[in-house]
Structures are given as structure tokens and as C-alpha cells.
């Protein structure tokens, strides 16, 4: 599964300037009172290939701090990860990292 049309975006005049594509993007998962904690960890392992320990640590960060930056990198890949996390119904947002 991937975000389709990501290549088309480069020629889309409505898109943001090229510079915003070059900036790293954060994938952020937010806490919700419904989703099971073990499910969140499992999804992190499945989507990112993180170790169980890292997945658990990030899950606990989401649980205790209300949100966690679970991945940072190129916009297209960040969108792909956000889409995969939302496919599992984790509350996920994207943000460009300020230069």
C-alpha cells in the first residue's frame, strides 16, 4: 500500500514549493482511550519493522505523553507510513519539521 499520485504532485501547481518536499516530516501517533496498548505495539512492529522493545517504548510514550513522533524522514515515505497507521486506525498526523 502506498500513497498514490505522490510523483504527480511534483508537477501540480497547487502543491507547496519544492522546498517543503525536501524538509523532513514527522509521523505522529496520538493517544486514544479505546485502542489496546498491545495492538499499538504490534502495529508499530508490523508497519516500521521496529523491535518489540522499541515498539513498546513508543507505545508507552503515546500512552503517557499523549503523542509520540514515531518516524521522521522524507515526505513521501512519511505519508506512506501515516496511511499504513491509519489503515490500522491509529490516530496519526503528519507535520513538516521546521527548518
Amino acid at each position: 500500500m502506498r500513497v498514490r499520485g505522490a510523483t504527480k504532485e511534483k508537477s501540480d501547481t497547487k502543491s507547496k514549493p519544492e522546498t517543503s518536499l525536501a524538509l523532513p516530516w514527522n509521523v505522529i501517533v496520538h493517544d486514544d482511550p479505546v485502542t489496546l496498548m498491545t495492538y499499538v505495539s504490534k502495529v508499530f512492529v508490523q508497519v516500521f519493522g521496529y523491535s518489540s522493545e522499541k515498539a513498546h517504548r513508543l507505545m508507552m510514550e503515546v500512552h503517557k505523553q499523549g503523542r509520540s513522533i514515531v518516524w521522521t524522514g522524507a515526505r513521501e515515505q512519511a505519508e506512506m507510513y501515516a496511511q499504513k497507521l491509519q489503515a490500522h486506525h491509529l490516530l496519526t498526523t503528519l507535520e513538516a519539521v521546521d527548518a
Partner: peptide
């Protein structure tokens, strides 16, 4: 909830809604 707002920026959100 199942298809939540994902980006703060309106243009980015529109891109997300259109592609993802």
C-alpha cells in the same frame, strides 16, 4: 475518527484527502 484530519496545513490536508 476513521479518516481523521492529518495535516495542519490546508494544502497538505487537501493533498492527503485526494491521494491517501
Amino acid at each position: 475518527r476513521l479518516l481523521p484530519d492529518t495535516c495542519d496545513d490546508a494544502v497538505d490536508e487537501e493533498h492527503w484527502r485526494r491521494h491517501a
